[in-house]
Design a protein around this nucleic acid. Sequence first.
DNA 1: CATGGCAACTCCTAAAGAGGAGTTGAGGAC
DNA 2: GTCCTCAACTCCTCTTTAGGAGTTGCCATG
Lengths: 262, 262
Amino acid sequence: MAKKYERIADALRQSIRAGQLKPGDRLPAETTLAEQYKTSVPTMRDALGELLAEGLIDKRHGVGNFIREPRPRVERSNQRHQWEKNRARLLESERLKTGSTEHDTGLTVSDLAFKASYREVKADEDLAAVFSVPLGTRLLEREYRTFPREGDAPFSLVCSHLLYDAVSSNPDLLDDSNEPWPGGTQNQLLTVGIELDRIVERITARPPTAEEAEELGLQKGVSVFVLRKICIDTDDRVVEVSDVILPGDVTELVFTTPLDRW
Amino acid sequence: MAKKYERIADALRQSIRAGQLKPGDRLPAETTLAEQYKTSVPTMRDALGELLAEGLIDKRHGVGNFIREPRPRVERSNQRHQWEKNRARLLESERLKTGSTEHDTGLTVSDLAFKASYREVKADEDLAAVFSVPLGTRLLEREYRTFPREGDAPFSLVCSHLLYDAVSSNPDLLDDSNEPWPGGTQNQLLTVGIELDRIVERITARPPTAEEAEELGLQKGVSVFVLRKICIDTDDRVVEVSDVILPGDVTELVFTTPLDRW
DNA sequence: CATGGCAACTCCTAAAGAGGAGTTGAGGAC
DNA sequence: GTCCTCAACTCCTCTTTAGGAGTTGCCATG
């Protein structure tokens, strides 16, 4: 026999799909729902927990449970990388004409807001291995978030590392007051003589840490994408390693692989 | 104050990392653990639930809780697509020499086992839109799983759709007794005059359905990757749409984007 | 010796309830 | 009119308890 909380979750799902419960509606209180479904409150909460993990409802402490607006997924495409590279090759004046507010994380949204902080750190075992440099090598660490709108929860947490000595020749790059980098990361790397050849992205999924869940405003049971973006230049050196955390419930990653070249 | 079950989960995590609990070890019974950590059984179970979702422990009903072997992640790379295409262009005799047992899902494991079933279906709204064909168009549906070893739980559930009329000229392709397709999907598509130009993959994450969790042998709280692979031929037509379910706890997706071409 | 059954152990689902913490809105004080 | 307090309502964490279900191994029976 199916478990009781699963049957209740199914019933609720069906009510949502059938349109009896509309986005924005508040559900009855959990105690009331428990009575309606002839069950206990903890079991009712188990059922709601399923819908929560699926992103069908929002739970708001002290307020109630709400049918969630079917939030459109945010696309993150690797086509952006190519686009970014072409843009980086244009003159500054030409770039201004295109007037895009997008940047190099590949998210297709406008009006991105940033909060950045820069640090000089030493390569730990993990990073030293990826960069193929000795343990303790100086790195520039840039930490930032992207927001759909000012005041909203961020939809990405980014921690990027660059070889310190490779970028320090342009002092602008060491200053976190002018984030995002004008013209994008690729353009700024060009100013220190680095041209990218390819980008390798490794993607895994896991539950968020408590801090990540807090910062991204994630509901319980929702997992995150962990994306490690490795930028390799035309000399086959790793020049940037970015670790990106993306909320799993609203993110769609899109990769296009061309087959007739390389 | 941090929640009690989170503090207990942290303590256990630390014991695992410090090596006091080794892979394969059985934890004390939940009732015993609850006493040790001076808490109730449900709270103890909440703590274990965190470790479960993170893939640090295995719960086995009626047996106990075990520290999990750090299972290596299975890589799925888009480089495979290119490799597959080159291979498809070789003569049959040449291909036999390479002797690889890999196939076109891009998984880097040997000795893949299949269970396949073929069906003729009609395009629903979703598929009709992706293929850009009228609703109800005939499609060949191929459903299969890939296994690391015979007897193990599968690590992918695949449901592939092809335009029926495009492949029916080669009757071998309509027969599910010779899965996997010799030489890979791309090679078989060549036999009906289809050459691929590019592959678009759209990736999302969500909790598994009850059936998916069952089939993939997933522990509670682990999410799955949902990968839709869209193959587009040199005439810009969508010729194959595959929906792939991958376990989130052991899968790593790798995408390489070259920047100097296209 | 081989086999079947049973007991002991495990985790799993479910219930009822107490106290805490966040939110909201009504109503009183100023 | 404005502000503050407080009560009522919400969900959250944790406890205690009960019975069900899966697994294993001992042991009696044949």
